[in-house]
Design a protein around this nucleic acid. Structure first.
Length: 464
RNA sequence: UCCGGGGUAGCUCAGUUUGGCAGAGCAGCGGACUGUUAAUCCGUUUGUCGUGGGUUCGAGUCCCACCCCCGGAGCCA
C-alpha cells in the first residue's frame, strides 16, 4: 500500500507536492472555522504529523468527524508550510481513507498520560504510546549497534542452544523443559519422575547463559558473540529483573581480564554514542518527560569513560562510609546493592568496573588469581541500574578448573566436554554477559525493566 | 521468598484515624468558542469500594483468611 513514513515527510520542504501517509490518530480537534486538525503517528518518529481536514471533503461528516484517538487512517494531501507555531509543516488533506475506528468509550488509551502500571495491563496497545514507541526505537538501535560493533571487530555471531542439559551452570534456578504430562509421568522404582523417558532422555532446562557453549567456539574461531534470550526461574520481584531477558555474550580467545574489561567498556560506550547520534528525538523526549538528567548523564559517560578498580580497592573506598550502610562492608562478602550504588552514584558519579573478586562467592569457571584468594572476574556497574555487565577471564588450566569444581561441589562428569577444551589446545580466554534491557533502561532513563521489553515475563505474568 | 506501601467510577485518586446517604479531577457524551496542538468554557452519565468469611441495627471503614499490583532486599544481567 502506497504511503510515506512520517519521519521522512517531516524532512521534506517541497511545499505543494502531494504526499500520502498512514497511521493512527493521536488527537482530533475541530475548528468552527470549517476544518479539523488531525495529529497522526505511525511509529517512525515520536513527532506526530498535523493534518488539516477541511469540511469541503466529501466524507468530512461520515469519516473525519468519526476519527478519534486510536483510529487507523490513510491520508493523501498537499505538503504545506504551517502558519501556526508547534510544527514546521502540515498536510492539507485531499483524501481521507479510514480503516479501523476506535470507540472512544472503550479505547483504553487517553490523550492524557496513562500510568506505566496501567499500560502493562494493556501491553498489546501500549506500543501506540509515545513512551513505549520511543523505547522500542532505542531498543532497536541498541540491537543494531550491537551487531555493528562486533561485526566491525571480526566477531562471529553465534547461536547457542536455548535448551540445555547442564543443570548447574551456577546462575540461578532454571525452567524445566519437558514433554512429560505430570498426570501420567513415568516413574522410577523409587517413585521419582523418570526423565530418562523424557523427550531428550535426560532432564533439560531453558538456558541461563550461552557462555559455556560460546567458549567452545571462541577456542576455535578466536572471537564470537551470542545475542539471544535467557531465562531465570527466580521469584524476583524488582524493577531490574525479568524471567526472560536478552543477553549479549562475547567470548574472546587469547585474552585476559584487562582485554575483557576493555572490550566491555568500549562496547557500552559505543552503544551510548550510537543512540545519542541516532535517537536524538527519542532521547529528548525521555529527557523531558522521564528523566531530566538523562542527556547530561549519557554525554558525561560517553566522554569521561569508566572508572576501573579492584574489589579490594572498592572495599577500601566503602569502609569509611560504613556507618551509612545497612550491611557492613567486609572483605570477603559480596558487594550489596547499596555498596554498588555508593560507588557509582557517590564516589565516582559514572560507570565503574570492579575486578578481582574473592573466589568464595564467584562461579567455578573464573580464573584463579596468583594471590590464591581472588578470581579474574569483573562487574560493570552504572548509576541508577547497578550491574549491566558481568564477566571474567575463564580458567584455562585443567587441574585448577577441576580443583575449583571440586571445591564448589560440582560433578565433573556433567562437564566432560567443557573440560575437554582444557585438555586439547587450551588457551587463555575471557568473556562477559551484558543485559540488553538494563542498557535500554540506562539509555532511556526508564525506571522499570518491565517497560523496556515488549512483553515482559515476570512471576505471575505471561498474559501477552 | 522476606520487609514496606497499595487495590474505591473508563483513568488518577480522596474518603479508612473516630462504622451512619459513594465523592473529586480527568476521560467520554451534549453544547459554546477557537489556526488548534496536554486547547479552553458550560452542562452531564458512570460503582462487584480486590475476593471470601466474620462482628454489628448498620461495614469502603473494624476482625480473619486469601489474591493481585508497586517499591526495597536477596538472586543476577
Amino acid at each position: 500500500m502506497q504511503r510515506e513514513l512520517i519521519k521522512h515527510v517531516l524532512e521534506r520542504d517541497d511545499f505543494g507536492s502531494t504526499v500520502t501517509v498512514a497511521g493512527w490518530v493521536r488527537t482530533r480537534r475541530d475548528s468552527k472555522g470549517g476544518f479539523s486538525f488531525i495529529e497522526l503517528t505511525d511509529g517512525s518518529i515520536i513527532t506526530g504529523l498535523q493534518v488539516i481536514a477541511d469540511n469541503e471533503l466529501p466524507n468530512y461528516e461520515s469519516a473525519v468527524l468519526r476519527l478519534s484517538i486510536g483510529s487507523a487512517v490513510r491520508i493523501t494531501g498537499t505538503l504545506t508550510e504551517s502558519p501556526a507555531k508547534g510544527q514546521r509543516i502540515e498536510i492539507k488533506a485531499t483524501e481521507v481513507e479510514p480503516f479501523g475506528l476506535a470507540d472512544p468509550e472503550t479505547y483504553p488509551l487517553q490523550k492524557k498520560r496513562v500510568s506505566f502500571e496501567r499500560l502493562r495491563e494493556i501491553a498489546h496497545l501500549r506500543p501506540r504510546t509515545n513512551t513505549i514507541g520511543a523505547v522500542t526505537r532505542v531498543r532497536n538501535s541498541l540491537s543494531y549497534a550491537t551487531h555493528r560493533f562486533y561485526q566491525d571487530r571480526d566477531f562471529l555471531y553465534l547461536n547457542t542452544p536455548l535448551i540445555t542439559a547442564s543443570d548447574a551452570e551456577g546462575a540461578g534456578s532454571m525452567f524445566r523443559v519437558s514433554t512429560i504430562d505430570p498426570a501420567t509421568a513415568p516413574r522410577t522404582s523409587d517413585g521419582e519422575i523418570d526423565y530418562a523417558e523424557d523427550f531428550f532422555g535426560r532432564p533439560t532446562f531453558l538456558t541461563v547463559s550461552g557462555q559455556l557453549s560460546a567458549e567452545t567456539y571462541a577456542l576455535a574461531l578466536d572471537r564470537v558473540y551470542t545475542f539471544g534470550p535467557t531465562f531465570r526461574a527466580e521469584n524476583s520481584n524488582t524493577r531490574r529483573h525479568l524471567a526472560e531477558f536478552w543477553m549479549v555474550e562475547p567470548e574472546i580467545a587469547f585474552a585476559d581480564l584487562n582485554d575483557d574489561a576493555d572490550l566491555a567498556e568500549d562496547y557500552v560506550t559505543y552503544l551510548i554514542r550510537y543512540v545519542l547520534e541516532n535517537n536524538e528525538t527519542d532521547l529528548e523526549f525521555f529527557n523531558r518527560w522521564v528523566d531530566t538528567d538523562l542527556l547530561d548523564r549519557l554525554h558525561h559517560v560517553a566522554e569521561s569513560g569508566f572508572e576501573r578498580i579492584t574489589y579490594t580497592e572498592a572495599i577500601g573506598l566503602l569502609e569509611p562510609a560504613n556507618d551509612s550502610f545497612e550491611f557492613p562492608v567486609v572483605w570477603g562478602d559480596d558487594l550489596q546493592s547499596e555498596h554498588e550504588r555508593y560507588l557509582t552514584e557517590q564516589v565516582f558519579k559514572r560507570p565503574v568496573t570492579v575486578t578481582d573478586f574473592p573466589f568464595a562467592f564467584k562461579a567455578f569457571y573464573m580464573r584463579r588469581n596468583d594471590d590464591g584468594k581472588t578470581v579474574a572476574a569483573m562487574d560493570v556497574l552504572v548509576p541508577g541500574i547497578g550491574e549491566i555487565v558481568g564477566g571474567s577471564q575463564r580458567e584455562e588450566r585443567l587441574d585448577v578448573l577441576a580443583d575449583s569444581m571440586r571445591i564448589k561441589g560440582m560433578d565433573e562428569d556433567h562437564y566432560w566436554w567443557y573440560l575437554d577444551l582444557r585438555r586439547f589446545g587450551s588457551a587463555p580466554h575471557a568473556g562477559f554477559g551484558l543485559g540488553l534491557e538494563r542498557v535500554v533502561q540506562f539509555t532511556t532513563g526508564m525506571q522499570n525493566i518491565r517497560d523496556v521489553i515488549p512483553f515482559p515475563r515476570t512471576p505471575r505474568n505471561a498474559e501477552f
